[in-house]
Amino acid sequence: MIENRPFLTFMAHTVLILGVIVVAFPLWLTFVAASHDAVRMSELPLPIWPGTHFFENLDVVLNKGLWGGDGVGVSYMLVNSMIMALMIAFGKISISLLSAFAIVYFRFPFRMGFFWMIFITLMLPVEVRILPTFEVVANLGMLDTYWGLTVPLIASATATFMFRQVFLTIPDELLEAARIDGAGPIRFFIDILIPMSRTNIAALFVILFIYGWNQYLWPLLVTTDQDMYTIVMQIGRMLEAGESVPQWHLVMMTTLLSVLPPVAVVVFMQRLFVQGLTETEK
């Protein structure tokens, strides 16, 4: 604090509280909608305080399914989303650790060629090359599989770059010492490099988990089998169907379920999240 101006401090708190309310208001309405029954959710004006049907709606959405209850809830979609997010996060981290290790610690022909090849991928998000990538996945017979959902998304230059930066800050003396003690490259990688970059790995994991969980367009294209749907895709499908048979209490409950896991990750692992965001700068 530079100087004491009680009025400005009061203003600052007011603006921040208003900001928090505006930012949180959409999620609050979702929670409220998810806690009322169908009758209340079709009367104007809609409620702004929670009702008493929260757990009942939760049960219907998770176990019975929507629109008359065909017996299939969305719980398996939560599992699919979880598998997809974990596979993308683990996959990206593993292949990036390996390639960053090779590029920083080995001298070999075409080293820079490989580096630039990885660099190019930084430039092309899946949205801009969507059709040809879809064709490749279809030709490889990977539609409706977890591999098709995740592998095309795990090549990422961002993670390789970050690990390269981390490895470059690790003192050379460590490698010299390890070699004197007779450690080979693999031993050095597993016993020294990975333990030394574990907070970076954890921070990246948080960011990649959110990235994987929130994928929308890609799962929409590569899955046609209902068993492979993810929870985020389901939102789009329900909004379309919701126009004819509005069941807002169930639609918003599903939305709430899709939002909670990644939000919980951000809130409870805030330090790692902020570190991951600033290190990858995206």
């Binding site: 390996l98 390639s99 290790f101 090779a102 920083v104 001298r107 090549a155 050379d172």
Partner: peptide, 28 residues
């Protein structure tokens, strides 16, 4: 870019970059 102290030539670095390069070539 490259460490002053590094490992000598072998096939290992190619195996290490292989997964990343495969995914990059096939899907990008």
């Amino acid at each position: 870019m490259l460490k002053r102290v590094h490992f000598g030539p072998s096939a290992l670095p190619y195996l290490l970059v292989l997964p990343q390069i495969l995914v990059t070539v096939i899907f990008f």
